[in-house]
């Protein structure tokens, strides 16, 4: 069952010279409940624009976003968790307070805050860092806090915008494993954006491949790999299959 349908999305931006250019060109796909849908496409093709439109940071020029509740009824934009490319934590707030503020913003009852903070920081392995300030953590640890914050609000949908692009490969691999394990364990509906094919192969249940800008859907592919997911040669084999099927090598011009 779909939790979100993107229907014929079209988005235009303006260059500094005032000349308009199209970023999304009739983009349509759906995000399935309890699955990790990976949106994969070349850099600059408009993947982040899709996520920004979903959370309301951008407005589509044409097309619509339809959100569904658990009963399959369409609904207003629900609460959405977001793991950004950078951690985007408030540096003057402790790790615990960063998560607490997200819970407060999401309207979670105050008596549940402590339990959620402890639980989700423990799930990402940072239960001992509740009172630390983010600037004293490593890049990978900060990204884990961002993950805990997005999961702690227990939203209908979690968006992840290349969340491991800013950390080194070893840390990124650990973070992918943690994120994938948590998504399976908590049955979260996730829309994950990346241009890294092995990452797409590891993280996805379902892959939506976009063309270069202006982006439209090039292919939708089910991931045949078993769960729980393990990092191994089959990941690279599936990534190679994806690459063979898609024209991702061409970088979009800016």
């Amino acid at each position: 069952m779909a939790r979100l349908q993107v229907r014929n999305a079209e988005k235009w931006f303006q260059r500094e010279t005032g000349q308009p250019f199209k970023v999304l060109d009739g983009l349509s796909f759906e995000v399935r409940e309890g699955c990790v849908t990976v949106l994969v496409g070349p850099s600059g093709c408009g993947k982040s624009t899709v996520l920004n439109a979903i959370v309301g940071l951008e407005r589509l020029d044409r097309g619509e976003l339809v959100f569904f509740n658990h009963d399959g009824q369409s609904q207003q934009r629900p609460l959405i968790g977001y793991v950004f490319q950078g951690p985007r934590l408030l540096p003057w707030k402790t790790v615990g307070d960063n998560v607490r503020l997200a819970l407060r913003g999401a309207g979670v009852a105050r008596e549940k805050w402590e339990d959620r903070v402890q639980r989700y920081l423990a799930l990402v392995g940072l239960e001992e860092y509740v009172t630390q300030y983010p600037l004293y953590l490593s890049g990978g640890q900060r990204q884990r806090v961002g993950l805990a914050r997005a999961l702690a609000i227990e939203s209908d949908l979690v968006l992840m915008d290349e969340p491991f692009a800013s950390v080194d490969e070893l840390t990124a691999r650990q973070l992918r494993e943690t994120t994938r394990r948590l998504c399976e364990q908590l049955h979260r509906t996730v829309l994950f954006v990346t241009h890294n094919l092995p990452e797409a192969a590891y993280m996805s249940d379902f892959v939506v491949a976009l063309t270069a800008r202006p982006a439209c859907v090039e292919a939708c592919i089910d991931n045949p790999l078993p769960c729980p997911r393990r990092w191994g040669p089959e990941i690279y084999r599936f990534a190679a299959d994806l690459e063979a099927k898609l024209s991702l090598r061409e970088e979009a011009e800016i």
Binding site: V55, L57, L79, Y82, G105, G107
Partner: peptide, 21 residues
């Protein structure tokens, strides 16, 4: 701007946005 966007995404009220961000 990134922190302001974050506060929007996590539904911070105007008061929370002003006082905490």
């Amino acid at each position: 701007k990134e922190l302001i966007d974050m506060s929007h995404v996590f539904h911070f009220s105007p008061w929370l946005k002003i006082s905490q961000v």
